[in-house]
Every structure is written in structure tokens, then in C-alpha cells.
Deep mutational scan, measured.
Amino acid sequence: TEEVEKIVRELQKRGVSQEEIQRILKRNGIDPRDVEHVVRRLR
């Protein structure tokens, strides 16, 4: 989703690792598959 993408991009800008990003998003109830998808697209 748009929202997830924004969050991921923001965290990446701050130098947060992929694993940490995924952990944060999972904690916020976001589907890990969505996270994977977004992270892969932004690489």
C-alpha cells in the first residue's frame, strides 16, 4: 500500500535496516508479504 511505502522509504532514509523495518511494520499489524513486496520494489 501507499502508506507502507511511505513508511519504508522514511525508515530507509534514516538508515534503518531491512530486518528492523520489517519488524517495526509487523508490530504495527502490516502484512509481512506487503512489506516484502514494498522493500523489494524500493531496492
Results as ranks from 00 to 15, higher is better:
His37Asn: 13
Val4Trp: 05
Arg23Trp: 09
Gly15Arg: 03
Glu10Phe: 11
Arg43Val: 14
Arg40Pro: 02
Ile7Met: 13
Glu10Asp: 10
Gln18Trp: 15
Pro32Thr: 04
Arg33Ile: 11
Pro32Ser: 05
Val35Arg: 01
Leu42Asn: 04
Pro32Lys: 03
Arg43Thr: 13
Ile7Arg: 07
Lys6Met: 10
Lys6Tyr: 07
Val16Asn: 06
Glu10Tyr: 12
Glu36Ala: 09
Arg40Ile: 13
Arg40Phe: 03
Val4Pro: 01
Leu11Gly: 00
Ile30Cys: 02
Gln22Cys: 05
Asp34Thr: 15
Glu10Lys: 10
Arg9Asn: 04
Lys26Phe: 14
Arg33Asn: 08
Arg43Gln: 15
Pro32Ala: 05
Arg40Asn: 14
Arg43Phe: 15
Gly29Lys: 03
Leu11Phe: 06
Arg9Thr: 05
Arg33Leu: 08
Asp31Gly: 03
Lys26Gln: 13
Arg9Ser: 05
Val35Gln: 01
Arg27Pro: 02
Arg40Lys: 10
Ser17Val: 06
Glu19Thr: 10
His37Phe: 08
Val39His: 02
Arg41Ile: 13
Asn28Val: 13
Ile7Cys: 04
Arg23His: 12
Arg41Ala: 14
Val16Cys: 01
Glu2His: 11
Arg43Ile: 14
Ser17Leu: 07
Gly29Thr: 02
Glu20His: 06
Arg27Ser: 13
Asp31Thr: 03
Val4Leu: 15
Val38Pro: 00
Glu10Ser: 08
Leu42Gly: 06
Val38His: 03
Arg23Cys: 03
Ile7Pro: 00
Arg40Gly: 12
Lys6Val: 06
Pro32His: 04
Pro32Asn: 03
Leu42Lys: 04
Arg9Ala: 06
Ile7Ser: 03
Asn28Thr: 12
Ile30Leu: 07
Gln12Thr: 13
Leu25Phe: 03
Ile30Phe: 14
Ser17Asp: 08
Arg41Ser: 12
Val8Gly: 01
Arg41Val: 11
Glu3Val: 09
Val35Asp: 07
Val16Ala: 08
Glu36Arg: 05
Arg14Tyr: 11
Asp34Pro: 01
Ile24Asn: 01
Ser17Ala: 07
Glu3Met: 11
Lys6Phe: 06
Val35Ala: 07
Glu20Lys: 06
Arg43Cys: 15
Gly15Pro: 02
Lys13Asp: 08
Leu42His: 06
Lys26Ala: 13
Arg9Pro: 00
Glu10Gln: 09
Val39Ala: 04
Leu42Met: 04
Arg9Lys: 09
Glu10His: 09
Arg23Leu: 12
Glu2Tyr: 11
Ile21Arg: 00
Lys13Ile: 07
Arg33Val: 08
Val8Met: 06
Arg14Ala: 12
Val39Pro: 01
Leu42Trp: 02
Val38Ile: 14
Thr1Lys: 08
Leu11Trp: 04
Ile30Pro: 01
Leu11Pro: 00
Arg33Ser: 06
Arg9Asp: 04
Pro32Trp: 08
Val4Glu: 01
Glu19Trp: 11
Arg27Asn: 12
Gln12Ser: 12
His37Thr: 14
Ser17Met: 06
Lys6Asp: 06
